[in-house]
């Protein structure tokens, strides 16, 4: 899935303008001409320059505004792709409440089953992977994975 270079260029010009506007709120440091806003402004100008070149090039090439890949039109494939970021988002929102073990198990199980793994494979693998990661990272590596529901049991 991609947008026309011209559209991309215009988006970048807008982005660069927004960055420049944000830098106007940075404090100046007394006695220094080159404060916190210098580098972001140079980079905003660079991004704007690239955006302008892309926009001009896109207009000249007359591409389609939006090119969609095959998977976007196939609902099953679209769901497959969206499930990946969806799973990470779900993790971010529920892991502190539920804890790592229930969250990771649920995410793995849903993904396995959606990707057509047989339940008799999916269930033990999801449980095994979750417990292995928890044992290795939380146990051995002492990474503070959220304990959540199981707080008092672990």
């Amino acid at each position: 899935m991609r947008v026309n270079d011209a559209v991309l260029g215009v988006l970048l010009l807008g982005f660069a303008g927004w960055v420049w506007w944000l830098t106007s709120f940075f404090p100046a440091f007394p006695g220094q001409d080159y404060g916190p806003s210098l580098f972001p402004r140079i980079l905003a100008a660079g991004i704007a320059g690239c955006g302008l070149l892309l926009a001009l090039r896109g207009l000249r090439a007359r591409q389609r505004l939006l090119t969609l890949d095959e998977w976007v039109r196939d609902p099953a494939r679209l769901v497959s792709v969206l499930l990946m970021p969806g799973a990470v988002l779900a993790y971010i929102f529920v892991v502190d409440t539920l804890g790592f073990i229930p969250t990771a198990f649920a995410i793995l199980l849903v993904l396995f089953l959606w990707f057509r793994a047989r339940p008799v494979v999916a269930l033990p693998v999801a449980a095994g992977v979750t417990l292995t990661i928890h044992w290795f990272f939380a146990g051995m590596m002492r990474v503070p994975l959220p304990r959540g529901l199981l707080d008092s049991v672990l």
């Binding site: 409440t97 707080d151 008092s152």
Partner: peptide, 18 residues
């Protein structure tokens, strides 16, 4: 709902641990 369940579970867990 999840909050109550969590509290319940936590409470029973604490009881177990205690």
């Amino acid at each position: 709902a999840s909050f109550t369940r969590r509290t319940l579970l936590a409470a029973s867990g604490t009881a177990l641990a205690t």
